[in-house]
Design a binder for these strands. Structure first.
Lengths: 218, 218
DNA sequence: CGCAGGCATCAGGGTTTTCCTGATAGTTGT
DNA sequence: ACAACTATCAGGAAAACCCTGATGCCTGCG
């Protein structure tokens, strides 16, 4: 067992959810919530200030994607172990979280004692992934080993991400072209590349994807 | 003051959020959570069984829209007062909640003591709306008084809702036509009517709308 | 250094989809 | 009985999309 309590920073954009989580964690005597944040910006600031043992991080934040927060903090505060707490088990999201160095990933569908367990497990230096999430990781790993690149999910370039965000926010090709001050034809190319890379071929599904991955909010 | 404790049924699709809310409510001695539900179906069943004083209801549920749950329970269990707890302050959503007889509407962005206050207020027979939400209600009311019907948000017919769901799930016109065994032309008409009624003119925004209102899930 | 490879940019032209207008038949409420 | 809404469908013009291909611009690497 651990002698010192586990110091935790809780990040979630909804205050009520955050307070609920903190209330749950407060019941455990070896867990202590040292700070809370509602945005990516404040999360990074508070993490640098308090240097907690565990960062409980929601992925959908109002300003920056939780993935970006995790990536930044992995290099800025390497001692802080990151536990992703997300509503969705999107495949790309999971793989990105693992890639940027998250030590765990659990779903909001799960029971709160799974959160507690995950925190203790991660604090002891191990990793913790919800069964669903673990399955996705295994599948992705296998595919990355076996499959040809064509079917692998390729990352989007910054410009492509920008176009996807505008698209998911309801702008059509012409409007995006105007917003970005580029030709409609260029936007069409970006869109085609995005669809090819993501293997998604409808605006509706692109929108859902963008929302799930935090590229845009609802 | 109230002599009997306020009996509450908590409905939210994410177990962890639900447990967090219950943990928060448990701190108040006059509030007692008599049951919890994670779906519209179980919410309605448990509400009929337990007949709580207050139903704390999330709007995005896996099976039925929270609005539908509220509508049904207003007639089945008229003594149960409904407090909507939603992530989003979507205008149509708010107006629908009020229309189906919700006694309150607060946002997950709010502090937990606002939830407590809302519950006590509603239990005493009054209504409680977050400031943002109240503003939307006022605006909608004014518009409904002044404005011509053309700009008013009209409800969708069952068939239109069906088409919207399929559209938001990524099907194109032809696929929807095939799914519903009707002509593409008919689907086009439905889509045009949906857009006119909702005053939304892109597939991306229709998708977001459908997700926000629970017509489809993410 | 040179060059492969990814990124950002754009165009032509054929194909598909959407948009606008208009129409018919069934249902429902008053 | 009649208005209002729903569900269904079409023709033709307009717009958007898809496919192919091309040009600079960096960046990393042998």
């Amino acid at each position: 067992m651990r002698l010192m309590p586990i110091r935790i920073l809780v990040v979630d954009d909804h205050q009520m959810v955050r307070e609920g989580l903190i209330s749950l964690l407060a019941k455990e005597h070896d867990l202590i919530v040292v700070a809370e944040a509602e945005s990516g910006e404040s999360a990074m600031r508070l993490c640098r200030e308090t240097v907690p043992d565990i960062l409980v991080l929601d992925l959908t934040l109002p300003d920056i994607s939780g993935i970006e927060v995790a990536r930044t903090l992995r290099s800025d505060c390497p001692s802080v172990r990151i536990l992703i707490l997300s509503m969705h088990s999107d495949r790309r999201f999971v793989t990105e979280a693992v890639t940027v160095g998250a030590s765990g990933y659990i779903l909001k569908d799960a029971a709160s004692n799974e959160l507690i367990r995950a925190i203790r497990t991660i604090a002891s230096g191990e990793t913790f992934f919800s069964p669903t999430v673990a399955g996705i990781i295994v599948t992705s790993y296998i595919e990355s080993r076996q499959q040809s690149q064509s079917a692998t999910l390729q990352p989007l370039s910054p410009r492509e991400t920008e176009v996807l965000r505008l698209l998911a926010q309801g702008q059509n090709t012409k409007e995006i072209a105007h917003t970005l001050s580029i030709s409609s034809k260029t936007v069409e190319t970006f869109r085609a590349n995005i669809m090819r890379k993501l293997n998604i071929f409808s605006v509706a599904e692109l929108t859902r994807y963008a929302i799930r991955t935090g590229i845009t909010s609802l």
